[in-house]
Amino acid sequence: MKKLLSAAALALLSTAGVAQADDIAFSGQTPGVFGGTSNHSSLLGYAVGVVLSGGVGYNQFGLNAGNTQTASPTVTNTWLIKGTVTKDCSYYGGSSTAHTLDFGTIGVNTNSNTNVNSAFDMVSPATAVVNSTTAGCNFNNTVTLSKQNGAQGLLNGAAGGYDSNEFQANIPYSVAASFQGTTNTSAGAAGSPQTVTAATGDASKVWTGGAWRSDMTLTINAPTPGKALVAGNYQDTLTVELKAL
């Protein structure tokens, strides 16, 4: 706080004995309330004038400019922070996406002294296992197993003629894909062992789940057929597709 009046004004007030200087409490006012000006000399002149006029009383004078705009005790700004992660699926299969599983010679019963019902039968199931260290998708996805020849499986495309009561020109097979994932497509959920299987009678099979990453194991099994096998080359194309939805 300040004494508003100068030493000269105080002397005049003291001599007259009619006015008293005191601390001034300033509050927000419009500038220039005293004689259209906001300087301290105007206040002093006004005070001296009161004294010289012989008036008796008590006065305090103050001047202060108000806020330049409405005060804001709290102010808030917001930022929307954005970015995009693209959908992606991975299935590591070495340096190529096309592979060959060659069973070589599929053994059949070639013994001449065997029971007629066993002649030319497939000796044992044909099996294969394919391991991949990295597979998965970063969004809801499907894992699809499909056989080009459908439920026929491995097909002999040049079998010639044969007694269809005793022989067949195809070898059905099953395929199973095993991995760690989740079937929850609406929220986070702990992964668990998952297996999608296209059985011998299936042309394809589809699994649907949420984002997952894991190793993947393919197990292929061609059991011995119910009939003897016609000689020739047997083949099929198995496709494993991971697709983000």
Rank of each mutant, 00 (worst) to 15 (best):
K243L: 13
G209L: 03
S90G: 08
Q168P: 06
N109L: 07
Y92G: 04
L101G: 05
L4A: 13
E241F: 02
L12R: 05
K227S: 08
H40N: 08
P172N: 06
F179I: 09
F26M: 03
S204L: 02
I220D: 04
G35I: 00
D88G: 02
V18Q: 15
L43T: 07
G104F: 15
G94M: 04
A16V: 01
T185L: 09
A244W: 07
T30F: 08
G36Y: 03
D23V: 13
Q168S: 13
I171G: 05
G36L: 08
S53V: 00
N170P: 02
S118L: 14
Q180E: 01
N39W: 02
D121W: 02
T208M: 04
Q148T: 14
V18W: 07
T127D: 14
A222I: 02
G157H: 09
A25H: 05
K82I: 01
N109Q: 07
A199F: 06
P193N: 14
A203W: 01
G161F: 10
A169Y: 14
T110M: 09
N131L: 10
A11L: 13
T84Q: 06
N77T: 02
H40V: 05
T30E: 14
P31N: 11
S146Q: 14
A126D: 12
T144N: 14
D163S: 13
T144W: 03
S146G: 09
G93S: 12
N111H: 04
A9D: 15
T68V: 15
N131A: 11
G188H: 01
Y92L: 07
A176R: 03
T37Q: 06
S53A: 10
M216C: 01
A21D: 14
G201N: 12
D23T: 12
W207H: 02
A228K: 11
G93A: 12
S42I: 06
T15W: 03
G66Y: 07
C137A: 04
A244H: 01
Q148D: 12
P73W: 05
K243Y: 07
G201I: 01
S27E: 06
N109H: 05
S42G: 13
L229Y: 09
S204P: 00
W207E: 03
S186T: 15
F103N: 10
I81Q: 02
P172F: 05
A158V: 12
N39R: 02
G45N: 15
P125N: 10
Q235S: 15
A151M: 08
N115G: 06
I81W: 00
T217C: 02
S38M: 13
T183A: 08
A11I: 13
T74N: 08
L154V: 13
T97N: 14
